[in-house]
Design a protein around this nucleic acid. Structure first.
Lengths: 190, 190
DNA sequence: GGCTTTATTGAGCGATCACTCAAGTATATA
DNA sequence: TATATACTTGAGTGATCGCTCAATAAAGCC
């Protein structure tokens, strides 16, 4: 009996993710979203409930895609090679809306105000870190990395390096390719 | 003949810097500033002209303080030791309003929208990077670092590491002290 | 003290914010 | 085809945004 929506909800979430990723939370108005997603206010709120609810969906999508892309690559080329390749990938950014990490941007923007979305972003960052740690553990098990290292500590450092790289890659005065290869080179010394 | 302002302009700029540093550009309203600086709208605009103008002053103050603190330390303990100590310092954050870098936060928040303050923040980041490069050059001249390294490349990597560290240090699930000491330890392998 | 000059005050400006809702429209079932 | 059930529309909500300005108060110079 009902009527079907004329839009593809998943596609709208992906589109919203890209806008939020680029412009941030406060930097994206509902006018922006309504225009880009081609939704009137009524439809928007019927579909997503609120700006924050859509942002949360966008964050989740972003984090899921990041983890699945990395684990897929690790299954194909091995854990260490995946970790070494990741820096290049995150700054290649041809069709990506931004090089900086959306989770980091969200966390940095909203943490001070105690916004719930900052906590969600922080949780996703933690998931991502645990994903890195798993790859370091697998690399250790495969003998690609010395057994004396703490994989959690390596993961924290590696994630921090990636966040720095991705932020630096937004700048014109930084050679991100050199930076990425230097970070990757560090993994060979473990 | 005139009447003197009842406030200390420099102190107000420092106070505004701390608020902006913590809450970001969009996250800080004029109401916030008027309340914290104890200024009515009229006085505020007579003193600073606009929110953006005050933000620019705050950025400048932030950058100047950062450079002068680092160069002072380098004069006291030497360039390499200063670079090795800096990571601990930036995350100690007893009386600092945030651990993340204000320049990086500003750049990340406003760059996508083409806001002029993002360019100013980017320029200050470049100054800071050049300051790091100078210290690496001085460390090289002193024989503390191998001559085969490119100091500009080292500076870019070091700055990126610091930005990542400072962002990570805002998180509860990251051991920032370990992170800082790992970054410092890397300098001994140069 | 009188005068000039500037600082201070706070009500209020238009614009924009996230969001609501009643009315109209299209569709799947009966 | 008739009806029930959504989806779509867009004018409009109160709140807040950055900011203005006329009125008032206070300080330095004569």
């Amino acid at each position: 009996m009902p009527r079907k929506p004329s839009y593809d909800r998943d596609a709208l979430i992906a589109q919203a993710r890209d806008i939020f990723w680029r412009q941030g939370w406060a930097g994206t108005s509902l006018k922006d979203l309504e225009r880009e997603l081609n939704l009137k206010p009524g439809s928007f709120y019927a579909a997503f409930g609120s700006k924050d609810a859509l942002y949360a969906l966008a964050l989740e999508r972003y984090a899921q895609d990041g983890v699945s892309r990395l684990t897929t690559m690790a299954d194909e080329v091995g854990p260490l090679q995946a970790l070494k390749t990741q820096p290049q990938i995150v700054i290649s950014a041809k069709e990506m809306p931004a090089r900086a990490c959306m989770l980091a941007k969200t966390f940095a923007e909203l943490q001070a105000k105690g916004h719930g979305l900052a906590d969600k972003a922080g949780a996703h960052l933690e998931e991502m870190k645990e994903c890195f740690a798993t790859l370091f553990r697998r690399a250790q098990a495969a003998g690609e990395i010395g057994a004396h290292h703490d994989p959690d500590r390596l993961a924290a450092r590696y994630q921090s390096d990636l966040l720095g790289l991705r932020l630096s890659a937004e700048r014109d005065d930084v050679n991100a390719i050199e930076l990425a290869s230097d970070i990757a080179a560090d993994l060979d010394r473990l």
